[in-house]
């Protein structure tokens, strides 16, 4: 019978070895800053939201109000100030956001890695067709001149009640003009007057707009040292009559 205990000894030894070897991995995650800033071009108004990421077992808090937020272009620097009304940082010495310029954002907050971000604003473009007050049908094509640096065109049909019907277009590098077919789903809208707003967006905005189509991704649209988006876009608008059969 004594020999029979050999397996028991072996089991005990193996169990101890496994228990020693099997310390579970602890959840190591260091929170980072989370930045949100979209520049409109041309304008001199911009805001920056400074937030943070959270560990899973950590309660969420408000936006960060005591960070150092600096926006710069090659010629000037603006240190933004926090406004509790919208929990955002606003310009103190506003920069002019102009087409085809590079802007840099730096956010410093004690206890977090410093975030740096960069965007290059898209170049100017024009809407060639339709012209203001033209009549448009769903078989028409919207034609734009090309915006240099634009990775993405994002637009809306906006009716009188301010209902938005979106559309988008990713240009090909060989495009000399941007041709965007009027979305087929406008069939389900109604005839009437619409504003068409089209935005030429930089690559960061493209990454931001695509975010969420895949799970498990971390949004880092132009941002290093943290998460979030720092992007720019330039908009054009035209007022048209949409005619549906």
């Amino acid at each position: 019978m004594q020999k029979f205990y050999r397996p028991l000894y072996s089991t005990a030894i193996i169990s101890i070895l496994i228990a020693v070897c099997c310390n579970s991995v602890s959840d190591i995650y260091e929170p980072e800053l989370n930045i949100y800033c979209l520049l409109w071009c041309p304008t001199s108004h911009y805001t920056v939201l400074v937030d943070r990421t959270y560990e899973m077992r950590e309660s969420s808090g408000d936006y960060i109000s005591d960070a150092l937020v600096i926006l710069s272009d090659p010629y000037s620097v603006d240190t933004l100030q926090y406004m509790p009304a919208d929990s955002a940082y606003h310009p103190r010495y506003p920069l002019n956001i102009v087409p085809e310029a590079i802007y840099e954002l730096t956010v410093i907050k004690e206890g977090f890695n410093t975030v740096t971000a960069e965007t290059k604003t898209p170049g100017n473009f024009n809407i060639l067709y339709p012209q203001p007050f033209d009549t448009l049908t769903v078989s028409d094509t919207i034609i734009l001149t090309k915006s240099s640096g634009a990775h993405y065109y994002w637009g809306y049909f906006i009716d009188v009640n301010y209902n938005l019907i979106p559309f988008w277009y990713v240009p090909d590098t060989l495009d000399s003009l941007i041709r965007i077919p009027v979305p087929f789903y406008l069939h389900f809208a109604h005839s009437g007057w619409y504003d068409i707003e089209i935005q030429a967006c930089d690559n960061n905005y493209y990454l931001y707009s695509q975010f969420g189509t895949e799970q498990d991704s971390v949004l880092q649209a132009g941002v290093t040292g943290g998460v979030g988006v720092f992007a720019s876009r330039l908009a054009r608008e035209v007022h048209v009559y949409l005619l549906l059969n």
Partner: peptide, 25 residues
């Protein structure tokens, strides 16, 4: 799931900016 953060987006149906939580996996 290691962490989470707020993702700001425009809700075109509600016509307002909103936040939702995104998971850092």
């Amino acid at each position: 799931d290691l962490g989470r953060y707020r993702y700001r987006y425009y809700n075109s149906v509600e016509q307002r900016w909103e936040n939702k939580w995104v998971i850092i996996r």
